[in-house]
């Protein structure tokens, strides 16, 4: 679908704390590590809502606080099963004449929010909206997912293009099928997944189908893009899918964060977009493709227009240099893995 929306501000939040996958492997297997070096862990007083607030605060400041008419929050770790983060955030930010809703589609809730708000802006229903992806992802202790399931949030303030925006979103497609690669039933604390099945029929099929659909609709090819961002459930998959589609390491590298942060689910591609926007130049084109288990993939064409006008803004990779490593005991206490 053709879109005509603009990114007026962007922000990402990664908690201060990390646990190494060596530490996780030490507890369960005595030695070894996961596919990534570390993952980001939310502190005891953080959840998807507080992290969404942090990311949105950065994006709203960069966008110079426009009157927001919709807050959509993608998450699969909402603090309340019933009671939207969208309404709590609307109150915190002081925007009450809004559509405030939460969305869930495993790891692609954040890009769904971008797509829906862009649609509302393109059609003229609203002028400004806030799209957020935020998760404190949970992996069952000793499960493969425990190495990567991480915490983080990404946000973009969207509006109508006026020539002064940071970037334009010009096109988006979605490809969805019923694929049982990963799910969580009501009242279950941890998700269930089908191991290696999650690769070919789920991640690769959906991202490749979505990107090829976009190429068919727009006529674009990989060499038309300066950067490509693919959902990062581990360090290997985004590189592999990029190569299969014809993208180079140089196009992929600026957005790769899984090795140091893990997989922040709904925030994953929005955090990567933040890292890419930090280094992109006006005129650059970015292809962004998310993946959500269940399963589906949203792909976007993003054209960079200008650099952010915010003197206080600190690039994401600069902020990531400062972190504190915690042990498995602290991680277990903070993430409610200890039953009393």
């Amino acid at each position: 679908m053709r879109l005509n929306s603009a990114i007026l501000g962007y922000g990402a939040y990664v908690p201060k704390y990390r646990i190494s996958t060596e530490e996780i492997a030490r507890i369960w297997f005595g030695e070894g590590s996961g596919p990534n070096r570390m993952k980001a862990v939310a502190s005891y007083d953080e959840d998807a809502l507080t992290m969404a607030y942090e990311a949105a605060s950065i994006a709203l400041k960069m966008a110079k606080y426009p009157e927001i008419e919709a807050i959509l929050v993608g998450s699969e770790s909402k603090p309340y099963a019933v009671k939207p983060m969208g309404s709590i955030l609307s109150d915190i930010f002081g925007f009450n004449k809004i559509l405030g809703v939460d969305l869930e589609f495993a790891c692609k809730g954040g890009t769904e929010a971008v797509q829906m708000i862009s649609g509302m802006i393109t059609s003229g229903v609203i002028k400004h909206g806030l799209a957020i992806g935020s998760d404190t992802a949970q992996g069952r202790p000793a499960d493969d997912l425990e190495y990567t399931a991480a915490s983080g949030a990404g946000a973009v303030v969207l509006g109508q293009p006026n020539g002064n925006e940071i970037a334009k979103i010009t096109h988006s497609v979605t490809f969805v099928t019923d694929t049982p690669d990963f799910w969580r039933r009501p009242k279950e604390h941890y998700p269930t997944h089908l191991g290696r099945f999650t690769g070919e029929p789920a991640y690769f099929t959906h991202i490749m189908s979505s990107v090829k659909l976009l190429f068919e609709e727009t006529g674009y090819k990989p060499s038309d893009f300066n950067y490509a961002i693919f959902h990062q459930p581990n360090p290997k998959f985004p590189v592999e899918v990029g190569k299969r589609l014809g993208f180079t390491d140089e196009q992929l590298k600026p957005g790769l964060l899984n090795d140091e942060l893990g997989n922040s689910y709904s925030a994953n591609t929005l955090v990567a977009l933040n890292a890419v926007l930090d280094v992109s130049k006006p005129g650059d084109k970015i292809l962004l493709s998310s993946f959500g288990s269940g399963a589906g993939s949203d792909t976007f064409v993003i054209e960079v227009v200008s650099k952010p006008d915010d003197d206080d803004y600190i690039p994401l990779r600069e902020k990531l240099k400062k972190y504190v490593e915690i042990d498995y005991a602290t991680y277990s206490k903070w993430r409610n893995k200890i039953i009393r």
Binding site: S43, D45, D47, T50, Y53, E54, S57
Partner: peptide
């Protein structure tokens, strides 16, 4: 004492 701080939102 003297350290710079910024308000944020957390769970109380």
């Amino acid at each position: 004492i003297g350290a710079r701080v910024m308000a944020t939102i957390r769970k109380w």
